[in-house]
C-alpha cells in the first residue's frame, strides 16, 4: 500500500526546530520564517550540537548576513506562492522590497550572487513546484491550477511548465503515476 502526503514545510520546519531547541534546553523565541531569537549566547559546543542535529533534517544555520537575507527572500517568495492569502496580484518585486526594506535591484543581485540563479527564476521554480503538487495530489484540472497560481491562461502555465522542466504537465503526471504504479507492484 502506498500513502501519499502533503506537507506544510513551515509547520514541519517549525516543529523540528522547536524539538531540537527544546532537546538542548535552549531558551528561544520564534520570530518568523527561519529566524529565532536566543535569550542567551550559545556555547561553541552547543552550537555545533544544534547544527549537527538540524543537518539531519536538511536544516542549516545560516552564518552570513547575505545568506540570511537570501533565506528571507526565499521564505517570502514561498509564502507568496504557497499561501493563498498573500497570493494577491501584487508584483513580486514590490512585495519583496516592501517586506525586506531593500531595493529590488539590490535583492536581485544579492540573490543571484548567493544562489547562482535569479529571483524571477526562483519564483518560477516555486510556482511550478506548487503546480506539481496540485497536479499530483489534488483533483484540480490544469485550468483550475492555472487560475489558482495566477496564470493568465492554461497555455501560459503549460508553456512555463514545459520551459522549466522540459516536459508537459500531462507527461509529468503520467510519469509520476507510472512510477507510483511500479513501486506499488514491487510492494505487492
Amino acid at each position: 500500500m502506498n500513502l501519499f502526503f502533503k506537507f506544510d514545510f513551515h509547520i514541519v520546519c517549525k516543529k523540528v526546530l522547536e524539538d531540537k531547541l527544546n532537546a538542548l534546553n535552549l531558551d528561544y523565541e520564534l520570530l518568523g520564517f527561519g529566524e529565532i531569537e536566543l535569550k542567551k549566547k550559545l556555547t561553541p559546543k552547543k552550537y555545533l550540537a544544534l547544527n549537527a542535529s538540524l543537518n539531519d533534517y536538511g536544516i542549516g544555520i545560516i552564518e552570513s548576513q547575505k545568506g540570511i537575507l537570501v533565506q528571507k527572500i526565499k521564505d517570502y517568495i514561498k509564502d507568496m506562492v504557497f499561501n493563498e492569502k498573500t497570493n494577491v496580484n501584487v508584483k513580486s518585486s514590490v512585495y519583496l522590497s516592501e517586506k525586506l526594506g531593500h531595493s529590488y535591484s539590490y535583492l536581485s543581485s544579492l540573490f543571484t550572487e548567493v544562489t547562482y540563479s535569479s529571483i524571477k527564476n526562483f519564483i518560477i521554480i516555486q510556482k511550478i513546484e506548487y503546480a506539481k503538487q496540485l497536479i499530483l495530489n489534488t483533483e484540480l484540472n490544469l485550468t483550475e491550477i492555472a487560475f489558482k497560481l495566477n496564470y493568465s491562461s492554461v497555455a501560459h502555465l503549460s508553456t512555463q511548465f514545459k520551459n522549466t522542466t522540459g516536459i508537459t504537465p500531462t507527461a509529468f503526471q503520467r510519469i509520476i503515476f507510472k512510477r507510483r504504479e511500479i513501486s506499488q507492484q514491487k510492494i505487492n
Binding site: A155, S158, T159, K162, T168, T170
Partner: peptide
C-alpha cells in the same frame, strides 16, 4: 488539442 499545443511549443 494538447498534442497540437505541444507541437506548437
Amino acid at each position: 488539442n494538447a498534442l497540437f499545443e505541444n507541437a506548437m511549443q
